[in-house]
Design a protein around this nucleic acid. Structure first.
Lengths: 230, 230, 230, 230
DNA sequence: TGTTAACCGAGACGGTACGTCGCGTCTTTCT
DNA sequence: AGAAAGACGCGACGTACCGTCTCGGTTAACA
């Protein structure tokens, strides 16, 4: 997407990716992360990164094209971890654990700084927005395992929209964190998880079923099938 | 000597809010809104507001203390409208209408610009964050009527956490709009509304009941009303 | 020149110069003097004078028309003292005393601040320049007594240009103080006084004599009177 | 890391004084001189220099540190000319020529503007004062040749304080120009020159002799030798 | 003695210039 | 040939002081 077509000038730093280039890259990413955590996105400057990483400002512009690229690159790095969703053996427990993780991650101001900065960055930079989308798509993708396991266990109807479920769990927390700016706590996380779990059981996340107009009865019925082998 | 009794710094434009002062104020608010819509928060400059409003930069700093104050003030203004939540006569319908409204408001780029800018602003300014919190608290407060009416109609259990419900409905949309940066559409809005409605009926938003650990069975029990028929 | 023709608005503070007006005036002059001494002319602001004197800024503009007028007024005040030139009984002694007085007045930084500020002010304000000219004309006028007494005593030729003499004595000191910015000391003062005294005796300050083209011989002749023994 | 070895702040534009840097420098100096002549020091703004020279304001601050440095630099430039004192073959003539030159230089308002501005600048800026001192020290240093030649010719006593003499000649003119703000003319210049010449011949500028208390007799004696020949 | 006009206090405002920060570009120099 | 190093143009920042204006309150001189 952001790749250059063949024939065009190849971005510097591409052709000789060994040795100094590689070290530079890591140093820069660290500096960006540190800066983001310390000052947030709006307080992050190219000059800071240059100083902190020991890489000259001019080089940063040549290779990353400015702050946007720097941040997008750092976000890519952030996505490369080995995090895995919880597995408590129960949908309720998994969702609750998921929600609590969000809660805790953003509860500690120090830990929240960098992620928050990324979200803020997406408001100002298309490239950061793209990177953020990629990051969360991948992250929520991992989470879907939780739902799939629940389906396998018969806790959730077949056809449940896993992506929607895992998003719905953390959504109220994100809403309060970044939109309404209200405090969040564990109780809230639990409430959200429970609500989503209930909705899942009611089949509200199963598109095929007329979920939109599902009545309580329908919901109850809807939950049955998976289990009701027969 | 020229200190005011309360000891706090007297914000200029407060003590003689008549005549020119008032006109100035309105012009400035309009300019902020326009600027926000045109360039977003990060692209909004005090100088732009000064030029656009015809009020001198110095005056803006004197009276609003900078961009933060300008934006916070504009947000206050934005909250002063007569919007009322939908009333379709059914919880499902109301929630769906609510969700769709969010969807539409942020679907049109032109209309979304200003609100988005406010949310972005909150990332960079404590004052904007406060103003945003106030705005949404009040706005969601109005929405709670929807839940209260549902309770009155017997569609929702007594004791339902109205605030949590209305937030849960729009949360997945906001999540995708501002965090995961995924597209939203009416189907999504409907799905969210349906899920929340289901959860409400399942009693997942009724704190008194041990909603947090509610099992499917508990949930069914808690949802008494629906069961009533027989 | 800057006077108002009859019929025009009479300058405020003119028609009712009693009571508060008078007190105000004194307070303002003091404040100007203090400010001048503390910050020099370029550091003197109308706002400082307003605060310091307790007279409102608007009033200062109304009555003095701004900094220029304020300073000019203060300078007028400074000229109203009872200083008198020294009288040692000898031209040499008087001139030396005069020179030393300049030296001492500007040697102490604290004492020199205000006078220096006035001289600086004259560079920026026509009114201050006028006031300064008036001040020094009057001041040097008093000094001329020194020369007149010398003439009366027969120490100086009749027709000696008293004004030129008293100016010549202090001129080298002022030159070093304000133009070449070199240090001055008593020895310098003495040298200047001695040189001028010698020139006076040589008749170089007696216009009628062709002083301008005086040769060494002429000078000797001119100096004759006092000595003329023979 | 980016510190320079000497420890002192490395003034920008110092280490790479080639190409653009040099051109910039000249343009700026011209602009300062022009501005000084047009508006005087108090009317000279950095922004004016920026506009006039085509060099950006920020750069001016970076390289010259503000108005002070700008003016000091321009003054340095002003000192780099090839002016030489007059040589009429007579002390009287040389001194008179010197005095008249001052008179003429400051008589024409257009020509006087820049020098006057420099003197005014010294009142507000230590750096300008230093530069002014350096300028005049050097300039009067050149003038001393006049006295030295006179000594060589036997017109002035050996040991005459050349610096004091040349300063004394122009001092009354500067006094009237910048302190008492009185008009100056050629007659005054001649008077001053004649007086100083007389004092020189009287030995009043010869420190070794008890110049301070020199009597007319002493003076005559002191002046004698040169003439003795016959 | 009551008016009434002159004057003053108070505060907001438009305006010029300040001096600084960070961006992104360019040139020069090194290796 | 790419990177380091540094100067620069540029736009915006937030501040200081200027000088003006409007409003309201006092006060001193006059009817």
């Amino acid at each position: 997407m952001s790749e250059n077509a063949e024939g065009a000038a190849p971005p510097p730093g591409t052709r000789r990716p060994g040795g100094r280039t590689a070290r530079t890259r890591a140093a820069v990413r660290d500096a960006v992360l540190t800066g983001l955590a310390e000052h947030g996105y709006p307080g992050l400057t190219v000059e800071y990164v240059a100083e902190r990483s020991g890489v000259h400002k001019t080089t940063l512009y040549r290779r990353w094209g400015g702050l946007e690229g720097l941040v997008a690159d750092a976000l890519d790095l952030a996505g490369e971890d080995t995090w895995a969703p919880p597995d408590t053996g129960l949908l309720d427990g998994d969702l609750r654990a998921l929600a609590r993780e969000v809660c805790e991650a953003f509860g500690d101001p120090a830990a929240a700084a960098a992620p928050t900065a990324f979200i803020a960055a997406a408001f100002q930079s298309e490239r950061a927005a793209d990177a953020l989308r990629a990051f969360y798509t991948e992250r929520f993708g991992r989470c879907e395992a939780v739902v799939e396991r629940a389906v396998a266990r018969g806790e959730a109807p077949v056809g449940t929209d896993a992506g929607a479920v895992v998003r719905a769990v953390s959504a109220p927390l994100f809403l309060r964190l970044f939109v309404t700016r209200e405090p969040v706590d564990t109780a809230l996380a639990d409430q959200s998880a429970a609500a989503v779990a209930a909705a899942v059981r009611a089949g509200a996340f199963t598109p095929s079923t007329g979920a939109g107009t599902a009545t309580a009865t329908d919901a109850r019925t809807a939950t049955a099938p998976p289990r009701t082998p027969r």
